[in-house]
């Protein structure tokens, strides 16, 4: 891979050089400089390109390659299967459950994390005392490792001594007590609540950074015109936050489509695939059932789905900009 990249770089460079030289005659000394330039650029970029090329680009290509084989992953016995894995995948109910759950997660993340983050960020600019303290605590969930969060919330949602059940009991809602993660209906919502807890602070800091960037004069001018705080929010803050909202949505959607850690720790995709996501299903097929070829086809489908979703967002965003 390294060599390929090098060759590619060199050949491209040669092309540009030769065309340049044939174009004008006087450039001999300059062409030497271009040549020097190439080695400088190459020297600076080669290490990063090598690592990136091997672990990201080569790997994506190889995922597609492996997805065309039947392969346990234990030995080197790859049997070419064409698109058989994809045909199986399309008929695989569990895969569609995982896709559905992934999109549920996307939707739930968008409607919980972003507004929650925005409310927190706005609160940070309101005239209340001890803001630094509030901000410090608000942000903490995002620093904890996902595995630690997963384990912590397994105990919080526990059916016997979990604090969720304790609170329900103490306010007389005993009938609602249950093993939240053991129940096929509630498990996904418990997980979504946990994910919102983890990521809302992240969007808080994004919105905070954006609000800081809004010029104070705008609010002053609005005040002179007699705008109340609600008007100020809807006519100044919100429109100016639009780019951040788009960025945050993209991050949230990408994040939700590749979610893995928390589900793996909290439910393992269960009970009965109720919380299965594409990534957990891929992991299960690949490293538990040793269907590496099939796992690769799930992997590659994830890549395609994520790619399409991002493309749609970017196109919609371009349109929106065009309209304005």
């Amino acid at each position: 891979m390294e060599r390929k990249l090098e060759e590619n770089l060199i050949s491209r460079k040669k092309e540009t050089e030769s065309s340049w030289i044939s174009g004008t005659k006087k450039v001999k000394p300059k062409s030497k400089k271009t040549n020097n330039n190439f080695w400088v650029i190459f020297g600076f970029m080669a290490p990063a390109l090598l690592i990136y090329g091997v672990f990201v680009i080569y790997s994506i290509v190889m995922t597609f390659y492996y997805s065309l084989f039947e392969w346990t992953g234990i030995d080197d016995n790859l049997i070419f299967a064409g698109i058989q894995n994809y045909i199986t995948l399309i008929q695989d109910g569990v895969f569609w459950t995982s896709v559905k759950n992934n999109f549920l997660l996307v939707a739930a993340s968008l409607i919980t994390q972003l507004p929650l983050g925005l409310i927190m960020a706005l609160l940070l600019f309101s005239p209340i005392k001890g803001m630094r303290f509030f901000r410090s605590i608000y942000f903490m969930p995002f620093l904890m490792s996902t595995v630690a969060i997963g384990i912590l919330f397994v105990y919080i949602f526990d059916g016997n001594f979990g604090i969720v059940n304790q609170i329900l009991g103490s306010i007389g809602l005993d009938s609602l007590q249950r093993s939240w993660l053991g129940n096929e209906v509630t498990a996904i919502w418990a997980v979504i609540a946990t994910i919102s807890w983890q990521f809302a602070p992240f969007y808080m800091i994004l919105f905070r950074a954006a609000i800081v960037g809004i010029p104070e004069e705008l609010y002053e001018a609005a005040e002179i015109d007699g705008a109340n705080s609600r008007k100020k929010f809807f006519n100044i803050t919100l429109p100016l936050l639009m780019p951040t909202i788009v960025t945050s949505s993209i991050l949230s959607i990408i994040g939700s489509l590749k979610y893995f850690d928390l589900i793996y720790v909290m439910t393992g995709g269960g009970p009965n695939n109720a919380t299965e996501l594409m990534a957990t299903y891929m992991y299960e097929q690949t490293f538990t059932n040793f269907n590496m070829g099939y796992g690769s086809s799930i992997s590659f489908s994830m890549f395609i789905i994520a790619f399409m979703v991002i493309a749609v967002i970017l196109i919609v965003d371009q349109r929106r900009k065009g309209v304005n």
């Binding site: 990136y52 990201v56 790997s59 492996y66 590749k258 990534a279 590496m292 890549f303 994520a306």
Partner: peptide, 22 residues
């Protein structure tokens, strides 16, 4: 090249898991 690096932010890392394992 810059765009090539940008794309890395968008792809799900799990897509690379099996080849990297291998």
């Amino acid at each position: 090249l810059f765009i090539l690096f940008l794309i890395g932010m968008m792809i799900p890392i799990h897509t690379t898991l099996i080849p990297i394992f291998r």
